[in-house]
Design a binder for these strands. Structure first.
Length: 494
RNA sequence: GUCCCGUUCAUCUAGAGGCCUAGGAUCCCAGCCUUUCACGCUGGUCACAGGGGUUCGACUCCCCUACGGGACGCCA
């Protein structure tokens, strides 16, 4: 029962759990998974990990599975599960099977731990947290890596006594694996200690559950953040002890904040869903995330199909990458310029509603989007700069007003107002003629009339060619706004 | 502290010993276009962390240093 002497395996009677995948399914080439712990929203790093795992599975004609790692019941929440699901759904990272919840699999983990215990590959430990803390302090003081000293390895601890279960790591030799991203990684077994696989309260811990699940789910490629590199050797020993083949590992580097430090809340928006609220398009987010740490020559713009086609783990970078909002904005603008107008209209409605504009995705909105789309980099911005098509402008944007209203624009506004009011039809051509006639009559430059008119009608918001702008704003609103501007100018003069 | 991983323009990256006087993209700057703002176009600034090797030849291979990140939990 001394684990130092027995390095056999505990596997023979352990069968693959049949209720997750059928035998035919596990026989399929590639199965990847995304395994978040539901303690918060889906953050950028997690989303990218999920994306890479999803892409790899898609490309290989394999399957992608979501596993909820909720064994820490104190920190896990259903709300977080929903947030993760919503984030993945937004990015269309659809799993190929129902999510697996670890809390539903405790019986299985228990059975595995008991097997390990019975095979002498794990043992009960009664060391108190106090002793562990003291040991740790001592080792740190001696400039050593803190690790459990194996005190309970050869003790006979009765099952009735409160205890944890520790897994016997081999004391000598080394472990290695070939990481699909960074190549061969080796570690001395002495660096490893006997990790806890079952807590005092009887629940299993991460390193055990991840191994059991990855095996049971038939995961062929474990694609995860490189903060797990150090766990991998421990897990490999667990696989060996259980007589299972290790999956292939691929560790992708972290995403850092703009300042180069680890991405966290203080960097602002880390939640993927925040970007949906802020008016980003999922395809922009996906494209951005994919290019963060991965590349395919000089190509920057990738459709989902192209990502699937070109993705490769070997092309994933080894160094961490910094998140850069400017580039995301550029990509978002690119997709805003090229997306279907009808789709954009639907997506824009909530952003307009947030500004108090309740409209429908009608022909006017389509025309507005066509006119404004290249002037915004988010849907929220698109809504903001398009509001004047629906609402009268309360104030003039100072910079635009200064430029447009210098000199005395009132006569020009009054005359163009008259000519516009007299038009038989409200069309681009007739409007253009009215403006041109005003310019000719006043013997001034085109801008002398057009500029104040534009700002009077738009409030100084970015807008397309003047006649189109006026057509979309409509005659009544246009005339009302000109009157308001004249009013405003006369007052501010006095 | 120990172990693991990493280091090309401000940022994302190309580069698998000569193709590199280091390419692309974002940002920034300038110009063109222009009745606003954009878009678009043209041009520009900006990088192989440092030091040793190996080699006829090193951004590419090896070693050391520095710096950065991660792990060292009865978190995952």
């Amino acid at each position: 029962m001394d684990c130092a002497t027995s390095r056999g395996t505990a596997h023979s009677r352990l069968q693959r759990w049949p209720d997750i995948l059928t035998a035919e399914e596990t026989a399929l080439s590639v199965i990847t998974r995304f395994a978040p712990s539901p303690t918060g929203y889906l953050h950028l790093g997690g989303a990218r990990t999920a994306l890479f795992a999803w892409l790899y599975a898609r490309q290989q004609g394999g399957r992608f599975i979501l596993r909820i790692e909720d064994t820490d019941q104190a920190r896990s929440s259903e709300a977080a599960v929903q947030a993760i699901l919503a984030g993945m759904d937004w990015l269309s990272l659809t799993p190929d099977a129902e999510p697996v919840y670890q809390t539903h699999r405790f019986a299985r983990y228990d059975a595995v731990i008991n097997q390990l215990l019975a095979a002498g590959l794990a043992y009960r430990c009664t060391c108190s947290p106090e002793r562990l803390a003291a040991l740790r302090a001592e080792q740190l003081a001696a400039k050593q890596k803190p690790r459990y000293d194996g005190l309970c390895r050869n003790r006979q601890v009765a099952a009735e006594q409160p205890h944890v279960v520790r897994f016997c790591q081999p004391a000598t030799g080394d472990v290695g694996f070939v990481d699909q991203v960074r190549g061969a990684i080796q570690m001395q077994n002495q660096e490893l200690d006997d990790l806890i696989i079952r807590r005092t309260d009887g629940t299993p811990t991460y390193n055990l559950t991840v191994v059991v699940d990855d095996h049971d789910m038939g995961i062929t490629h474990v694609i995860r953040g490189d903060d797990h590199i150090n766990n991998t050797p421990r897990q490999i020993h667990l696989y060996r002890a259980l007589g299972w083949d290790s999956p292939t590992f691929a560790h992708i580097p972290m995403i850092l904040g703009e300042d180069g430090s680890r991405l966290s809340k203080r960097h602002g928006a880390v939640s993927v869903l925040h970007y949906r609220e802020a008016g980003f398009l999922p395809e922009a987010m996906l494209n951005y995330l994919a290019r963060l740490g991965w590349s395919h020559g000089d190509q920057e713009i990738f459709s989902q199909d192209q990502l699937i086609q070109h993705f490769s783990l070997a092309a994933v970078n080894t160094a961490p990458a910094s998140f850069n909002l400017k580039k995301l904005l550029w990509l978002n603008q690119h997709y805003l310029k090229t997306a279907e107008t009808t789709r954009l209209a639907e997506l824009l409605l909530p952003h307009l509603a947030a500004l108090g504009i309740h409209t429908t995705a009608d022909t006017k909105l389509h025309a507005v989007i066509a006119a404004q789309r290249e002037r915004a980099d988010t849907l929220a911005e698109l809504a903001r700069i398009s509001a004047f098509y629906y609402q009268d402008v309360a104030t003039f944007e100072p910079k635009a007003a200064r430029k447009a209203f210098k000199g005395n624009p009132v006569p020009a506004l009054q005359q163009v107002q008259e000519r516009l009011a007299a038009l038989d039809t409200w069309q681009q051509a007739t409007i253009h003629q009215a403006v041109a006639d005003t310019v000719a009559a006043l013997e001034v430059g085109f801008g002398k009339v057009a500029l104040p008119l534009r700002v009077a009608v738009t409030g100084g918001m970015p807008s397309p060619e003047l006649d189109l702008t006026l057509v979309l704003v409509g005659r009544t609103a246009t005339l009302r706004r000109i009157a308001h501007a004249i009013d405003y100018l006369l007052k501010s003069d006095a």
